[in-house]
Amino acid sequence: MNEPLFLESVLKERIWGGTTLHDVFGYDLPSDKVGEYWAISAHPNGPSTIKNGQYKGMTLDQLWEKHRELFGGAKEEVFPLLTKVLDANDDLSVQVHPDDTYGLAHEGELGKTECWYIMDAKEGAEIVYGHHAKTKKELETMIREGKWDELLQRIKVKKGDFFFVPSGTIHAIGAGIMILETQQSSDTTYRLYDYNRKDDTGNLRELHIQQSVDVTTVPHVDATKEKEIETLENVEITTYAKTDFFNVFQWDIKGKAAFKATAPYTLVSVLEGEGTLSVESGNFPLIKGSNILLATDINNWSIDGSLQIIASTPGIKI
């Protein structure tokens, strides 16, 4: 094969969504309340479809199941990564995710550790990241008494910020923020607080208070990671995260830059610009909004153009 796999993916309507994913990337939205684009996904709730080559028409979960050789013979039961683009036109609910042990035991799927690259943020936009409770009992009391302003830790954000959000971290994306999220392949979310909002049918959205208390890390641990920057010929590579779950990089390319695989496969999302991806089998145009899988049989590639890319590879659990 030896060619990159371009992916067509699933858009998700959300109560807090908007139209930014069309405005920025030209994606064809089903409504004006689209909040998520599951850009690179093998999750059954929204698998990506391959657009080119001999596997055209297959979904990524089917490819993982039938052609594990394209992923270095990986042994995991499910494809471990999921890349999303989120448009928070309104505040997301305050939520928390379980770790693998709790998620597998209670939900039958992986837990969710994730990270956020802030693609854009309006002036004054903020996220919820962590809490101020010192004990589980204090956490439960503050939740029961609705002391959200005292409990929740809020942080103002700007374009280019990066946050590592391990399982057990109370968090929420605020209005006016667009992010690229790299996460474990899981759709388990425990909603702790939703500003008493009602859905389209006039009902309050379901909360998961006990599960949230069960899985929240107390006291909060700031998991911010120091980024590393390496300048090579025509590319600046920023390493944001090296974890058991995923490794996340930013490639700022100006000109022709050469790359060598550092993992069995690499996920690539083009956030800005355009250019050409070259591999042994040929040249492939890259445009803003492209999402690509570079499988095991692509050991070397080059990208020529002016682009900003977020790339990720699977983590290695020791």
Results as ranks from 00 to 15, higher is better:
3 E>H: 10
4 P>F: 02
4 P>W: 00
5 L>V: 07
6 F>N: 01
6 F>T: 04
6 F>K: 01
9 S>C: 05
9 S>Q: 05
9 S>A: 07
11 L>C: 10
11 L>S: 09
13 E>K: 09
14 R>P: 05
15 I>R: 07
15 I>E: 08
20 T>C: 09
24 V>D: 08
24 V>Y: 11
26 G>E: 03
26 G>N: 06
28 D>V: 14
29 L>H: 02
30 P>E: 00
32 D>K: 10
33 K>T: 13
34 V>L: 03
35 G>Q: 00
38 W>N: 00
40 I>E: 01
43 H>Q: 03
45 N>G: 11
46 G>C: 08
49 T>M: 12
54 Q>V: 15
61 D>P: 01
62 Q>T: 13
63 L>P: 00
66 K>T: 12
66 K>R: 12
68 R>I: 10
74 A>W: 07
83 T>E: 11
86 L>N: 00
87 D>Y: 06
89 N>Q: 15
89 N>I: 15
90 D>K: 15
90 D>N: 14
92 L>I: 08
93 S>R: 03
94 V>E: 05
95 Q>S: 04
101 T>R: 15
102 Y>I: 05
102 Y>L: 04
104 L>H: 07
104 L>W: 09
106 H>R: 13
107 E>N: 00
109 E>T: 00
111 G>Q: 01
113 T>S: 06
114 E>A: 08
114 E>L: 06
114 E>F: 04
115 C>H: 07
115 C>S: 15
119 M>V: 13
120 D>E: 12
122 K>M: 12
128 V>D: 00
130 G>Q: 02
131 H>K: 08
133 A>K: 05
133 A>C: 08
136 K>L: 09
140 E>V: 13
141 T>A: 15
142 M>P: 06
143 I>N: 01
143 I>Y: 01
145 E>N: 11
147 K>T: 11
148 W>K: 04
149 D>K: 13
151 L>Q: 04
154 R>G: 07
155 I>V: 15
163 F>W: 02
164 F>Q: 10
168 G>P: 05
169 T>W: 02
176 G>I: 03
178 M>R: 11
182 T>C: 14
183 Q>V: 05
183 Q>Y: 03
184 Q>E: 09
185 S>Q: 00
186 S>R: 01
190 Y>E: 02
193 Y>R: 04
194 D>E: 09
197 R>T: 07
198 K>C: 06
203 N>K: 12
205 R>W: 00
209 I>R: 01
210 Q>T: 13
210 Q>G: 09
212 S>C: 07
217 T>Y: 03
217 T>G: 08
220 H>T: 09
222 D>N: 13
222 D>K: 06
222 D>G: 08
227 K>S: 14
230 E>R: 14
237 I>L: 11
238 T>R: 02
238 T>K: 04
240 Y>R: 01
240 Y>C: 04
244 D>I: 14
244 D>E: 15
247 N>T: 13
248 V>F: 11
250 Q>S: 11
251 W>M: 14
257 A>N: 03
262 T>I: 13
263 A>Y: 02
265 Y>F: 14
265 Y>T: 10
265 Y>G: 04
267 L>F: 05
268 V>Y: 08
271 L>Y: 03
274 E>G: 10
274 E>N: 12
279 V>P: 07
280 E>P: 12
281 S>T: 14
283 N>E: 14
284 F>Y: 15
284 F>T: 06
289 G>N: 03
290 S>V: 05
291 N>W: 07
291 N>H: 14
292 I>N: 01
296 T>F: 09
297 D>P: 11
300 N>M: 15
300 N>L: 15
302 S>W: 07
317 K>D: 09
